[in-house]
Design a protein around this nucleic acid. Sequence first.
DNA 1: CGGTATCCAGGAAGATACTG
DNA 2: CAGTATCTTCCTGGATACCG
Lengths: 127, 127
Amino acid sequence: MLERRNGIDLPSDCQGSGAVLARIGDKWSVLVLLADGPMRFNELKRKIAGISQRMLTRTLRGLERDGLVTRTVYGTIPPRVDYALTCLGHSLRTPVEALGLWAIAHLPAIEQARQAFDLRGKKELGA
Amino acid sequence: MLERRNGIDLPSDCQGSGAVLARIGDKWSVLVLLADGPMRFNELKRKIAGISQRMLTRTLRGLERDGLVTRTVYGTIPPRVDYALTCLGHSLRTPVEALGLWAIAHLPAIEQARQAFDLRGKKELGA
DNA sequence: CGGTATCCAGGAAGATACTG
DNA sequence: CAGTATCTTCCTGGATACCG
């Protein structure tokens, strides 16, 4: 994604950051990540409350593909499928939770900055 | 603290996580965030290498609106505009860099998981 | 130099219906 | 229960051209 061109490179950690953010930056992945303990499909769907069946399937497939969750199918009727975090998936929770803590701490400041910014925009229009 | 899991709703702090991820989860914000020191528009554009003028403008506006960067216009000719991280913006670097470190450490594992996953998919098609 | 304005393609995500 | 298939809408992001 980030090609090195004409000599100037971004800090090396950008490569990874970009890929990881593409993975967890989507609308639902983090929520799945934070829903811990092995869970069945509809259990997750209920817990996440708002996700569509389609998006939950897609999100879980993506996480499974990246080795962040395991998918265990029991050949029973009715079918039962369990999803659980892998070791790798669990380890990702640490930095993600750090981000969550930052969000809790600073979201009010962000909201405030937004209002101030939008207000300035309005005034310029009026002037 | 993030682990409250009594089945009903997501922890309240997920809202914040979601909002922050929506902010930095886009394709370019993090790169701007990590490019430190006050920088002029084209300086940033060169450093990020691959971003279009339009997206850099949009990204910077978004970050400015959220109070993460400042935009300083000098009324000179030719024009000069400096962008710098605010205190808030700088503080966000810590968790973002933590995520970057995780990425560096585990990206190989992810790549490997992907290949294994895709391979399994192919075999099933063959069978 | 530092932007805006406009157009366009592709993917993300929702709603709905059907299946083993 | 745990999905797939399909259709549609929205948004992101790239390309291009012009402006103060």
